[in-house]
Design a protein around this nucleic acid. Sequence first.
DNA 1: ACATAAATCCCTAAAAATGAGATTATTGTT
DNA 2: AACAATAATCTCATTTTTAGGGATTTATGT
Lengths: 259, 259
Amino acid sequence: MTENAGNSLKRGLAILEVFSEDRLEWTPEELMEKLGYSRPTLYRYLKTLREAGLLSSSANAGFTLGPKVVEMDFLLRKSDALILNGQKHLKNLTERYACTALLVRRYGDRILCVASERSVANPRSSYPRGRPMPLGRGAIARSLMAFLPRRQLVPMIERHMEDLRSIGLGNTVEEVHESLRRVKRAGYAVAFGEVTPGVVGIAAPVYDAGRSPVASVCVTIAGHLVNGNDIDEISAHVRQAGREISEALSLERENGKMA
Amino acid sequence: MTENAGNSLKRGLAILEVFSEDRLEWTPEELMEKLGYSRPTLYRYLKTLREAGLLSSSANAGFTLGPKVVEMDFLLRKSDALILNGQKHLKNLTERYACTALLVRRYGDRILCVASERSVANPRSSYPRGRPMPLGRGAIARSLMAFLPRRQLVPMIERHMEDLRSIGLGNTVEEVHESLRRVKRAGYAVAFGEVTPGVVGIAAPVYDAGRSPVASVCVTIAGHLVNGNDIDEISAHVRQAGREISEALSLERENGKMA
DNA sequence: ACATAAATCCCTAAAAATGAGATTATTGTT
DNA sequence: AACAATAATCTCATTTTTAGGGATTTATGT
């Protein structure tokens, strides 16, 4: 209940953590219970968070996430070079194949869809912006991990060993590492129904300017629509998209630095 | 520079304020300068904010807003009853008229577009999700203020008197109040080029369950496309949309309470 | 492997956070 | 419009954390 003892910034931010898909509205009373804060303390935090716009309280309906959240996401959408440069490649891919095409950004150990296009109605496997994705499984995850420098990769494998083992990537860090080396040699990752049953994922890394990939471009397509040849063809296009987006990003960064 | 003295939650959250359309990337050095925090302090805050996911630091490129922002916005989009119930009405309106249709939510003194549809390419007046709007001007603002209970309305008028006077709504609180009473009687607000030159806005309030409107539904349309009759017709539809969304929201809230 | 820059650690005075209980606003109701 | 019930804020002494100079460690690039 109380694990953020002694750090009012953390304690305040912990309030944001309780908002979830299942529970987007909390009364002060419920928050006191959940977080174990005293009444005045909680109200102080709530006041500050509301003033910052991160929370919003509508009369009679408790607290919810606030307008600042929407504004900040707007800022990100509006100026994220990855999205700005990648969107047209997603369109390309969805026009060519009956698929969903995604851009997934990596933030440390989290990966998150930031943009998606689809040419086929498939609510089941749809990944809209903002939906978190698992780092231990799926083509996207692997297409990111495989291209990380060893220094970052090994600890990450260790942190996600359980998931990685369960999908058969290897039983030891070394074995997983070897599997990922194969992905790296191929230049892309494929996964059969690892995230959504019956759906094949094909993903390639996107670079910014450094040596670690910052994102992944991915096509997901119904398994019964593709055979080995199709996958080869699609993966070539996905890799190409990854390369082109990477190039645009690194150009942009160069120019940015000059300005 | 330092005005948040003595409140580490506020001081930490102040970091989020420096991110703007013009500046979405800050190095620790720049933040120290801008906020006047000492090095260890700043790093402590940054660490906490990053752990919370509100910030993200990519090697060599300073800090940016983080994945938590995107996830929280996803939560809001996904479960905002206003959006879920209102989207189809926006579609209706854009299908009928060559316009942009918006849903704008009120958060205290801030109003923010949360959803929009358009049937005409008009980047100039386009208001995508997340773009803040002025509270002192435009049909949307007025359609919200006019229906507020006096207790909330009068202080709000006072806070925005300057803007309200400049668009000719009145020179005193009482005069503005009277103008807004007329809006209330009409049931909707119209504005000619107040927000975007040459664009007419027609807006009606949306209620939740209480007596204050929580949002506004609005149609913006090129001024040269409409005459008085058109405006009468459109406003009838906008009001109707507002009423129907309100009804859906209040029903939903009733049911929610029962569950 | 090494040099350079970046991030964290150590520490104690000084300042802020905390929470019990009282107080004051805010709502909803008759 | 006055009132009751609830919600939010205030007061204040005590405890706890914070802040920041300077040293140190850890990353990062060559």
